[in-house]
Amino acid sequence: MATTPGTSAPRDIWDRLQAIDRRVLYVLLLVVIILPLFVPIRLPMVTMPSTQKLYQAVESIPEGGYVIVSTTWSGGTRAENMPQTEAILRHLMKRRLRVAVFSFDQQGSQFSYNIASRVARDFGYEYGKDWVHWGFRPVAGVVMKSLVRDIPGTFTTDRDGKPTKDMPVMQGIKDIKDVDAIVEIAASGIYMDWIGLVVGANPKLKFGFCPTAVMAPETYPYMDSGQIVGIMEGMRGAAEYEQLVNTVGLATKGMGSISLAHVLIMLLIIVGNVGYIVTRARRS
């Protein structure tokens, strides 16, 4: 069961520590993920400055302001991007801001429509009057270049093919200067396109980004420069945002499991290294 790479059989406890069977690891992982579902772990959660900044940016938008929410994600990253999408839409709709949703991802379009419809019902938002869904648009760069200059021209129809120009939610919206904020929820580096092609076009525009956790570190240089006003970092960021908007969603529920999974991984790395250090010390 436990073998050391390059040898046929385990020798002693220190070698065994470095070669725990993968099935044991998998079972341990499943246990730490599932257990907190039945025995909830409630731990205090501190809101990170990146999340707080995004929240404050949305709070600072004047009433009736206009926000574009782009959802460039698919089922693969649903666990992180879905709670983010829901949390940000809840905040925007709670603040009675006008919301336009669309996606550069084919699945993301369907997803964001379903989520926005659900949240809109909770807040009494009327489609066409308070919010709109522009559907799926491929080739991000050309769409961004176009929306900077002419939003109704770029999105002439919504995702159902209905003309947008007569919708009350589009009234007074001509170009990027009429938009107060853009929030991108993504599992890709599309924030670079927003920064490069759109953000500088309106100095007052706030650009918030909700990436998967794995992408969060690479976005910090852009938050430092002010090109991104705030970041909701993966599921942890979503849990913090849920706390800020007083709701309990998937992200909040997941923090116990994810905490334990982190502890497990750290313990496994320590165990493996203890075995490695002792073995190396003996050999030398």
Binding site: E80, A213, V214, M235
Partner: peptide, 14 residues
């Protein structure tokens, strides 16, 4: 942060 991302995906499934 990668660990956080991957664990979140598994939690979602469970």
């Amino acid at each position: 942060t990668t660990i956080m991302a991957r664990m979140a995906l598994l939690f979602d499934r469970m």
